[in-house]
């Protein structure tokens, strides 16, 4: 039996190992220190006890402390900054979009911002319109930012370490529904380089391209459809920006059909970018147009029946795969 761990434990361990390995790694965010409970979901539990003043709880001042992360990074630190929920990134958008992302370029390469911003999101808890947005497309649309989303504990460990070691600003977006799902434990010290997708399941008939929570759903559908003789390949992007073009295009060149799956709303999303790249490169090889499975184009509704209807579903993934096979 291989050891098991939850994604929360893996993220905690990843940050801990990164802090032990490099003194310039510092951590701050609301309630992250042990005196305040080690973070709202306890992702940072034990770290202030282990690393003292390298870990700080902040006031509710996202613009202030994310901006402080930018400055500390320019000054030679490697800050890991927690913004409690993805929606609160909107409060400090200026520091990220106008500063963190652009400073290397605007300074002609003299200064840089090796900062990791951790945040979480995810519908399904009836928390409504201001606590469930997915922001990967906001930041992937910002040159200079890297965007990472883990789908399992082992990857979460390797990817948070990859973000912290990376020399550019990274958004590490965590999926709340995945936090407590146990998975294979990471190999300690195993750093996953950003920009490399993972082929979770090989197949020949259609490529499912996804990330985060979409991986488990896509795998479930792939397994179900295998019984009907459909052999799907499943790609976990892990890094959304920069996108691993080679892995995507090699796979689709083989399967000649593709479906992109994400929880974020459909329009102007990551799925549109991937679909476009596939069409640009493989138009004449495709047997069907690329399909997108995503959540509805509206704010996340509160009540359960609407929230369920808003979210993409496994049935929609199956339907999209069938649409490429017709």
């Amino acid at each position: 039996m291989t050891a098991k761990m939850t994604m929360l434990e893996a993220i905690n361990l990843g940050i801990k190992d990164a802090m032990a390995a490099d003194e310039s790694v510092i951590l701050f965010g609301e309630d992250v220190a042990d005196e305040q409970g080690g973070g709202v979901v306890k992702a940072t539990a034990g770290l202030s006890t282990a690393f003292g003043e390298r870990v700080r709880s902040t006031p509710i001042s996202e613009q202030g402390f994310v901006g402080a992360g930018v400055g500390a990074a320019i000054g030679g630190m490697r800050p890991v900054v927690e913004v409690m929920m993805a929606n609160f990134l909107a409060v400090c958008m200026d520091q990220i979009v106008n500063h963190a992302a652009k400073i290397r370029f605007m300074s002609g390469g003299q200064t840089a911002v090796p900062m990791t911003i951790r945040t979480m999101s995810g519908a399904g808890f009836q928390t409504g319109g201001q606590h469930t947005d997915w922001t990967e497309a906001w930041f992937a649309h910002t040159p200079g930012m890297k965007v990472v989303m883990p789908s399992n504990p082992a990857d979460a460990y390797g990817l948070i370490r990859g973000c912290i070691e990376d020399d550019d600003p990274c958004l590490f977006q965590e999926s709340m529904p995945l936090y407590w799902v146990p998975g294979e434990a990471p190999v300690q010290g195993n750093v996953i380089r950003l920009g490399e997708a993972n082929i979770v399941k090989e197949g020949t008939d259609v490529t499912l391209i996804t990330y985060g929570r979409g991986v488990a759903d896509s795998m479930a559908v792939a397994q179900k459809m295998a019984a009907d003789g459909v052999n799907a390949e499943v790609i976990d992007l892990r890094t959304i920006s920069p996108l691993d073009n080679d892995t995507i295009l090699n796979s689709v060149a083989k399967t000649r059909r593709a479906v992109v799956v994400h929880e974020a709303v459909r329009s102007f999303g990551v799925g549109a970018e991937i679909s476009s790249r596939i069409h640009e490169q493989l138009f004449s090889d495709l047997k069907a147009p690329v399909q997108r499975v995503a959540s509805s184009d509206c704010p996340t509704p509160f009540c359960k029946p609407l929230e369920d209807a808003f979210l993409y579903s496994q049935a929609e993934i199956e339907h999209a795969i069938k649409a490429t096979l017709d």
Partner: peptide, 18 residues
């Protein structure tokens, strides 16, 4: 609204925080 019903203040779309 708290019960998420269509007769709620926000038709069940906003919830307790809105």
């Amino acid at each position: 609204e708290l019960a998420g019903r269509d007769t709620g203040t926000c038709k069940g779309k906003g919830g307790p925080m809105h």
